[in-house]
Write a protein that binds this DNA or RNA. Structure first.
Length: 732
DNA sequence: CGCACGTGGTTTTTT
DNA sequence: ACCACGTGCG
């Protein structure tokens, strides 16, 4: 990613002293300091584009090449499989030793590895299966049904959230404080859910971490073994760790090991899923870190882009403090466009893309970013009409597709008959005449005898018996086969392939795609066998759950990148379009409800801006289709936070400078106004004063004249609808 | 059993 | 506007 990588030089690599020069050349002073730090815990505050991944990898290479540690003693943790893979690849290019002794992986991957190695001590079956969030949700629904929980009062999704976030805080059901009946009921479901998972031999994602944490904290022999082994623990994207992950790291680090954490508090954009930036400050305290190293030189963006990013982020409170700079001063100004509608915004973007393309910039070098997925629609439409190829990132992943999940469920059930989730998924898919009624009977029988559904099915009759026979036949026939052949056999003999082949009419196309995916599944299995030593079925199923897989074709085409700002973190492009910069959309209106929500939105904007290397477009629309209705919004307040002199307006300037910005006043986020066809004389975005409620911003209006009413978001009193007949409002 | 229609929700997401 | 999910009918 960073341009100057220092690899090769054949023989020199084998010579320690020569190698270090090769390794270390091209590092700037703080980077060098970070890489060559003596054994101690450290926090590397690494700004966007400052070479943080490079530092992390070079640090490992340095430690090994100087003999400070053998590969055996390295534990490197990331959040995504992609990051872990990149680390392994770059490291093996840099080091002549093999990377095998090192443990490099995601939190979940590493915990899985530990739990497999010590499954008895962790009280798990050897071949325990991993539930993805979809599986987890259906498991929760089953528990709720069994406990007769009202799913209107307790939406399953909310329970899922409750359980996951409790686990991420390190709390078991009995640890959760419940003072009201509502919470007590949720705790009950939590406890029953965990019991069900235990019985069925499955674990969800957060369970992997919590169970592993408990294993290490309760079993001193195992803990001490790994503490003695992993003398150097390195963590990427540390700002994204949740409390449990941090506790896990602390446990492994013990008293003597060093924790080398790399992160950027300004790029913390995952608080909504439990990430705790506070871990950075805790780290300083808990590990008595005396040297915080800041990587502030940016190798990615031109000066103007960086200045804009710095200006924006300086509005945030509670930063650890960091200011990016670059030797690439100046560059182009940021281009700002106000369009009347979302459609015209998209058309403008298309014409700019065409222009850039004509100038020789590849489509892959451009990215279209937006705050929410729904926004891609209009953009896609414009791109299709213009004949520009693009790829939307995010969305359904390979192993999450329905047909793939069905196929894997057969394998899971064959391997572990206790897996009720898997059984329920396929007992009647393809349909074999086992209806809801029969399934209910099975569940009752299982409950009555305290057995699994499989055992109940074995004792049932008729069509259920045939199903049990099918699974057993599949198991028998594939016992001795290699993985890809098991896969192919199951696909053909389960009736899955036939089912999709028989599809006609409207569903034909869809079925064809599903068949292709099933084919791809055999390919994936073949690939897996080639790439992994452990080519067992269990191992493949784990791979499927833990690595839902980007498994999409078309990477080689010259296609534009479309994605949410979240998905863009860690990437960079020559030209970036940040779209939909409207108050209520970006910053998103919902962020208002959350403590620190606006700051997180601002960090998100910071991430978006810093993706651009040379050219950055900022665009917004006065009016757009939102949730099936036309809504009107004011320009994003973030635009006001960017210095005037860095902006090049391609449309007449629409954003007034905020005279209060200097005093730290930030207007509340206004919701996009729906159906704002009104004649009240008040325009959304207008700042107003009310005698009782004080200062606020008009966020909506309807009706006309004194019969109308306006919605005002007050700085202190919150959002209110006011009838104009009575309310005395003055414009500010 | 399978389809048709109705209903509710709609920020961001990795494992 | 659109999608995912659930219920009720043929």
């Amino acid at each position: 990613m960073e341009s100057h990588d220092c690899v090769d030089e054949g023989a020199a690599l084998w010579d320690n002293s020569a190698m270090n020069t090769t390794l270390l050349s091209g590092l700037n002073p703080p980077q060098l300091q970070a890489v060559t730090l003596p054994q101690q815990s450290a926090l590397i505050l690494a700004g966007a584009g400052s070479g943080k991944t490079r530092v992390l990898i070079t640090r490992i290479a340095y430690l090994i090449s100087t003999g400070a540690v053998s590969p055996h003693g390295i534990l490197a943790v990331t959040f995504t499989n992609k990051a872990a893979k990149e680390m392994v690849t770059r490291l093996s290019a840099m080091l002549p030793v093999n990377t095998r002794g090192m443990w490099i992986g995601t939190f979940h991957g590493l915990c899985n590895r530990l739990l497999r190695a010590h499954y008895r001590e962790a009280n798990l079956p050897q071949a325990f299966q991993i539930l993805d969030s979809g599986d987890q949700l259906s498991a929760i629904k089953r528990v709720m049904k069994a406990l007769d929980v009202n799913d209107e009062k307790y939406p399953p999704r909310e329970l899922q959230n409750f359980i996951s976030s409790s686990k991420e805080q390190g709390l078991r059901a009995h640890d959760v404080e419940a003072f009201d009946p509502y919470t007590r009921r949720k705790v009950e479901v939590y406890a029953a859910y965990d019991a069900q998972c235990q019985k069925e031999g499955v674990v969800d994602f957060s369970e992997l971490l919590l169970r592993c944490y408990e294993l290490l904290s309760r079993n001193s022999a195992i803990r001490e073994h790994y503490q003695a082994r992993f003398t150097h623990i390195l963590v990427d994207e540390f700002q994204d760790t949740n409390p449990l992950q941090y506790q896990w790291l602390k446990l492994l680090a013990g008293k003597n090991n060093s924790l080398f954490a790399v992160g950027d508090d300004d790029q913390s954009i995952y608080a909504f899923r439990g990430a705790n930036v506070g871990n950075m400050k805790d780290l300083l305290r808990d590990f008595k870190v005396d040297a915080v190293i800041k990587l502030e030189q940016n190798y990615r963006s031109h000066g103007n882009i960086l200045d804009a990013a710095n200006a924006l982020i300086s509005n945030n409170k509670n930063r650890l403090g960091k200011n990016l700079w670059t030797s690439e001063q100046g560059g182009e100004k940021l281009r700002v466009m106000e369009a009347p509608t979302d459609v015209e915004e998209a058309n403008f973007i298309v014409s700019e893309i065409r222009q850039l393309k004509a100038e020789g910039l590849k489509l892959t070098e451009m990215a279209l970013l937006y705050r929410s997925n729904a926004q891609s629609r209009v953009l896609e439409h414009a791109l299709v009409s213009a004949g520009l190829s693009y790829r939307v990132y995010g969305g359904l992943r390979f192993f999450e597709r329905q047909e793939i999940k069905h196929a894997l469920a057969y394998l899971r059930l064959m391997q572990n008959t206790e897996d009720d989730n898997a059984l329920l998924r396929i007992i009647n898919f393809p349909t074999r005449g086992i209806g809801a009624r029969s399934i209910e009977q099975l569940q009752e029988a299982a409950k009555l005898h305290g057995t699994t559904l499989w055992d109940a099915a074995a004792r049932a009759g008729g069509k259920v018996t045939a199903f049990v026979g099918l699974i057993e036949a599949l198991r028998r026939a594939t016992r001795e086969l290699p993985l890809p052949e098991i896969m192919a056999h199951v696909l053909l003999n389960s009736g899955l392939v036939l089912h999709y082949k028989n599809e006609t009419g409207a569903k034909k196309r869809e079925a064809e795609e599903r068949l292709e995916n099933l084919n791809e599944l055999v390919t994936a299995a073949t690939l897996f066998v080639h790439e992994n030593e452990d080519d067992s079925l269990t191992s493949f199923l784990t791979h499927a759950s833990l690595e839902a897989g980007e498994h999409q074709a078309g990477d080689q085409d010259d296609a534009l990148h479309l994605m949410t700002v979240h998905a863009a973190k860690g990437l960079e492009f020559n030209a970036v379009f940040i779209t939909g910069l409207e108050e209520g959309l970006f910053p998103h209106q919902n962020s208002q409800r959350v403590d620190g929500g606006l700051d997180e939105e601002r960090r998100l904007m910071y991430v978006a801006i810093t993706r651009a290397r040379r050219r950055l477009y900022l665009s917004f629309a006065q009016r757009r289709m939102l949730n099936g209705q036309v809504s009107f919004s004011a320009p994003s307040s973030f635009l006001q936070e960017l210095p005037d002199e860095l902006l090049l307006w391609l449309s007449p300037r629409a954003v007034p400078r905020n005279p209060f910005a200097a005093f730290g006043y930030v207007a509340p986020v206004a919701a996009p106004v729906q159906c704002a066809v009104s004649d009240t004389g008040w325009r959304t975005g207008q700042r107003v004063m009310h005698q009782k409620f004080g200062e606020g911003v008009v966020t909506g209006a309807e009706g006309s004249g004194n019969d109308g009413r306006v919605q005002v978001n007050f700085k202190h009193a919150g959002s209110k609808w006011l009838a104009l007949e009575y309310a005395k409002l003055t414009a500010l």
